[in-house]
Design a protein around this nucleic acid. Structure first.
Lengths: 204, 204
DNA sequence: ATACATAAAGAATGATCGTTCTATAAATTG
DNA sequence: CAATTTATAGAACGATCATTCTTTATGTAT
């Protein structure tokens, strides 16, 4: 351990990009589901040999976790950003649900939500998946609760900010599910508007 | 066609009950997902030979449709019944969401919703499944809209009964998804209460 | 130039997949 | 009692599954 320098990459360099490979895998899982996506299919989409997949992610399950993390980083980031410190609660919630609708309907090949449609299904038998699902849901609910607590809450409101955050998150999940069934953006917009209006009744 | 009597069952009688067999298949799909449930596993749970399965339902896909119909008849019926003509809107919505929470958390082996967790995943690649998902969602939303239209709507409400029904249905789906992640009944109750409070703001 | 470490490509693994088929058993109809 | 019809039981099917292994190629470091 006298050598302080990091181990440099030696040998043949990887012929593919990690990010674009994860992006491809994400879409395959998103479309076909966890069980429905075969390792062959994933490797073809990623342009990655099976051996490399097993070395870098340990297997199909590890790749799925990596795909979920990639999905959260790239697809959920705008949703979380909508709750940022700037803007009124109305504006933030409107932007939040608009991003939800956009994510779930943007690409006809990947309708709905990787977490709420695919991971939720896989969570039925796999405990690690169920725990991951719980963590991801809790994270978004915490973000929403924090944003709601920044607004003045109605004195007579029988609903706590935490409960309202749970309601907002549940509505967002329900909207993404509805997109999975084929509903278009314009059909979901009134539901998103209703969600904003409903949530605003608890504050101010 | 002169014979008006129906064709009587002849030959060896079936050694199993159709309803209990469908019930068993429903739980297997509910737990393992569509792709995750194998025909062997289904046959064992139903106590039905493979040949019989293929003769009576045509295959795995047909059995899945039958299981969904059975699920709607047995599990969704109390949810729809909560919207019945008796009772105030508050009572009906409270009962509605209580039944949703109960369904999604009743059995730890079958968390969440067969439609919103399993069918929604399978709808990603199979068009017949996507159409079925859309039909089931539309049916519940129509029921909710009908119930909401029976109550007096606020004159200044910018949200239509249809949009509010979409919001209620989306919230119900989101609650069932949250149950899939392991949230208990008592954790979901505040969210259900918030949903009722939010929806009531649109009427009266 | 030689040695070495890693990626790539694909063959091979045993298991399991959904489906079909054949043969046997049981119950009703004539 | 025959004849017929249907359910049962399990073998068999080719295909595909996730995973592992072997071989070859290609890069850097000494």
């Amino acid at each position: 351990m006298a050598e302080t320098s990091i181990t440099r990459a030696r040998g043949r360099p990887k012929g593919f990009d990690d990010q674009s490979a994860l992006e491809a895998a994400t879409c395959v899982f998103w479309q076909a589901g966890y069980d429905g996506a075969s390792v062959d299919q994933l490797c073809r989409a990623m342009n990655m040999p099976r051996a490399t997949l097993y070395q870098s992610h340990g297997g199909k399950e590890g790749l799925f976790f990596a795909a979920i993390a990639h999905y959260v980083d790239t697809r959920m980031a705008p949703i979380a950003a909508a709750l940022g410190p700037d803007g009124s609660l109305r504006d933030d919630l409107t932007a939040f649900f608009a991003e939800v609708v956009k994510l779930a309907t943007a690409d006809p090949a990947t309708l709905g939500c990787l977490i709420s449609c695919v991971l939720a299904d896989a969570a039925g038998t796999n405990c690690a998946f169920r725990d991951e699902l719980d963590r991801r849901y809790s994270a978004l609910e915490a973000l929403l609760a924090e944003r709601l607590r920044q607004s003045r809450w109605r004195a007579d409101a029988s609903v706590s900010p935490d409960a309202a955050a749970g309601l907002a998150a549940a509505t967002a999940r329900g909207i993404m599910l509805r997109a999975r069934s084929g509903q278009q953006s314009q059909d979901l917009a009134p539901v998103a508007a209703a969600a904003v209006a409903a949530l605003l009744h608890f504050s101010d």
